[in-house]
Design a protein around this nucleic acid. Sequence first.
DNA 1: AACGCCGCCTGATCGC
DNA 2: TGCGATCAGGCGGCGT
Length: 289
Amino acid sequence: MPELPEVEVLARRLAALLPGRTIQKAEVRRARIVLPASPGEFARKLRGATFVQLSRRGKYLLFEMRAHGGNTFPVIGHLGMTGRMYLAPAKKPLPKHAAVVFHLGAENFVFEDTRYFGRLTLDTSAVQALGPEPLSDEFTLESFAHPLQRSTQPIKVKLLDQSVVAGVGNIYASEALFRAGISPQLPARRLKPAQIARLRNTIRETLLEAIKAGSTVPLNEGAGSDRLFYFGDPITNDFYERRLRVYDRAGKPCITCGTPVKRIVQAARSTFYCPHCQNPKTNRSVETI
DNA sequence: AACGCCGCCTGATCGC
DNA sequence: TGCGATCAGGCGGCGT
């Protein structure tokens, strides 16, 4: 599922392709994707608009658009669980789950989303509610520690709270906790200062490595060459999985100590961890920092 | 007001 | 073989 690194790679790719291009027609094929606007409102607003710039905030894509009249306005994209965005030849038949299509002339910008959890919307409220950007200077020790110290939730669950830190999802939450040697079940407010500092570092490290790895994936060659986002592709899945140390590795040996990786369910989501390396009773790494 | 839980969606997988 | 049940999960909304 797309988290911050996957969205970052997509944003960079789209930033190289879209600025300067003008939407001749906006086609909304799934009304819920553009909520709270109606399909008609959304299509009218986007028709004749030009892409100015692309960026990312948390797991959101930010499209800066310029209307035909000259004023700029934002469009917010979210990939949900299964969203993809890419350019395809206009003559190519649209996929079954094409949710929104921008007709650009010889090419279409396609937002495809099998499960329709994604969004492409004029509403910026979700972005404004996000916490600090983990790879920026605003993700300070204090900004991270503050919400954790007030929370009784398990740290893994708290990491999924986008107001604590923006962009961490189910995969990288498990990965960052493994790297930090912290139990996912530890109540957030029980983390010691050294653990908070360590976790802040491993969140950054995990996300940065994933971006670096993602950017090495050939995005416009090989099978499914029209796709800009390759999650789910067997070739890159192999590539992707080899980066993951605990996620989806239940029963397999921990890469550090060999203990079988455990899978538990927290807040209705899978968590993977090493019961030895992430056990406060057996792991002394925090004390030795 | 932090927190738990539900609904939204489809496709893959599983059990009978 | 076929079909229904279950699972996957980001996030908004709602109730406590």
